[in-house]
Amino acid sequence: MRIGELSKRTGVSPRSLRYYEEQGLLTSARSDAGQRHYSDAEVERVSLIRQLFAAGMSSRVIASVLPCVETPSDPGVTESAFVTMTRERDRIDADIADLIETRDALDVLIRINRRHWAELSTARKPMTPAA
């Protein structure tokens, strides 16, 4: 399939697909006219690349992990990918802990804000004149 079809099937822009190729994350065959052609397997690979980017990995880190997908029986590749993946998982765990801490601090501010608004709304109620 050509780059436009891969783009449609994956939801990734042709520009991003070209970037993936420049970074060594994706490969294509070239026609005589120089057009990129991708196999059906590249759809799944692009999906994996997107997930890894969404997890905050850089293209450099992704490039170091992907050989594990290509040659899963190579112990050297598998071990290197394992080390990289566990390091990235630890980084993500730290990011999650930071986000939880930030969310908890925001919850405190929200509670304070609610109390403040409640106090303001009761202070604004007009007093009824005594008869």
Score class of each variant (00 low, 15 high):
Leu48Glu: 07
Ala97Glu: 13
Gln35Tyr: 15
Asp74Phe: 06
Thr27Ala: 13
Leu106Gln: 01
Ala123Asp: 15
Ala130Gln: 13
Asp32Cys: 02
Asp74Arg: 09
Ala33Lys: 13
Val46Cys: 02
Arg87His: 05
Trp117Asn: 12
Lys8Gln: 14
Asp93Val: 10
Ala41Lys: 13
Gly4Asn: 12
Thr122Phe: 11
Asp95Met: 06
Trp117Asp: 08
Ser58Gln: 02
Ile3Trp: 04
Met1Trp: 07
Asp98Cys: 12
Asp40Phe: 06
Arg114Ala: 14
Leu99Asp: 01
Gln23Arg: 15
Met1Glu: 10
Lys125Trp: 04
Val61Ile: 13
Val77Cys: 03
Leu52His: 05
Ile62Cys: 05
Ala94Glu: 14
Pro75Cys: 11
Ile112Pro: 00
Val83Met: 07
Leu52Asn: 06
Val12Gln: 01
Ser28Thr: 09
Asp93Gly: 06
Tyr38Trp: 07
Asp95Ser: 11
Pro129Asp: 03
Arg30Ile: 09
Ile62Leu: 05
Ala63Lys: 12
Asn113Trp: 06
Ala29Glu: 15
Ile112His: 04
Pro126Asp: 11
Ser16Lys: 02
Val83Glu: 08
Phe82Ser: 06
Ser59Gln: 07
Ala33Glu: 09
Tyr20Arg: 00
Arg18Gly: 08
Val69Ala: 12
Pro129Val: 03
Ala97Leu: 07
Tyr38Met: 07
Lys8Pro: 00
Ala131Val: 14
